[in-house]
Design a protein around this nucleic acid. Structure first.
Lengths: 188, 188
DNA sequence: CGACATATTGAGATCCATCAACCAATGTGG
DNA sequence: CCACATTGGTTGATGGATCTCAATATGTCG
């Protein structure tokens, strides 16, 4: 799947200057402090957030408990997919959990830009495909791996996660309790 | 999310005649007998399969056990996403589990057609977005619901499934054992 | 230092998988 | 048409993985 990221990268680097300029013009960089929210539950996700630097997480509330569904690092794009695609209120929160710099792009501006610069539709498609493949990988892990294996998998693929993120977020991202994760770590 | 399907439907119905004709020309309808495979593990997924009539499932082998990852009915599109997008060997099988009629579209032909008829890229994007949202829903269920709730959820959203599909497939689709599913059914 | 978030550890309960036996329906070859 | 295999489903007993509740540490930051 990294190959696909490369493909996307190459695609962007080969965009004509006008298209690149438009992309630039509809994005703006912003510094966000740890703990602040990019998106609140109930809001419509009107922007996509490219993490230039820092960490963010996406989560929702279930019976008052926070369930972390995604963790974002440098070069990841954070959106609440259904809210973004359908422009409906979001069930999810997106929160920055370390001081960060994000480049945000308005959904509407991007829609307009896509009409004028069709290459951007292709880009959107590739990004969405990548995200869908990532979701399938994650489902695969829930389907086949037990808690310990899921954690090891995470360790191997994203070693930086453990150093920077509270265990409680990681545990809920893995779909296990904080205590179980702690025990898993003690055992390894 | 049904609203999004409607949107896609509307989009297709408003395509210009030429684009529709191209879409038609690169697709072909085929009858498939129960048990036959649309895609085998190791093959590259070179086609997408629109189920006009019948039932199919997607699964992979894990330690020799079949894990069903998707169930397809009328109007669903079956592909092995990563194999299709990246044109790499598939980990998954796609098997027809009832006599079916499918309309298959070649990946390559579709790629070519998209170059000539950009509306098709938009269509592809919408379909991919829909699929990604579906995956998120499924992940949500694995994350928050226990076996019984997942089954009930399935019952409510897809009552036709239970009538037509062996319990063993449903169980593995839900990520539980056949026996557990049987007990859940007895209890409800 | 005190306060509050973060992490570890223990004990008991619960969910679910596994193994194994069994039943019912369907189909197949002789 | 019968004997038997095959497939799909149920049921019981047991063990393991993981959750929950609760107590106790270990930060970390004003």
């Amino acid at each position: 799947m990294d190959a696909y990221l490369d493909k996307i990268d190459t695609f962007i680097n080969h965009l004509d200057l006008k298209t690149l300029a438009v992309l630039e013009s509809i994005s703006s960089t912003k510094k966000i402090k740890k703990g602040e929210y990019l998106l609140q539950q109930g809001e419509i996700c009107k922007k996509s957030y490219f993490i230039e630097q820092g960490i963010a997480r996406k989560f929702y509330l279930n019976d008052g408990k926070e369930i972390t569904t995604a963790l974002y690092f440098e070069n990841d794009i954070a959106v609440s997919l259904d809210s973004y695609c359908m422009q409906q209120p979001s069930r999810e929160f997106i929160q920055v959990i370390a001081d960060s710099t994000v480049s945000q792009t308005s959904f509407l501006a991007f829609q307009t830009a896509k009409k004028l610069f069709p290459k951007l539709i292709e880009l959107d498609l590739m990004l969405t495909e990548y995200h869908a493949m990532w979701l399938e990988t994650r489902l695969f892990e829930f389907h086949t791996l037990d808690a310990t294996s899921r954690y090891i998998q995470l360790l191997e693929n994203h070693p930086h996660i453990i150093k920077n993120i509270p265990l409680s977020y990681i545990a809920s991202y893995l779909g296990i309790s904080l205590e179980t994760l702690s025990r898993i770590r003690a055992k390894i």
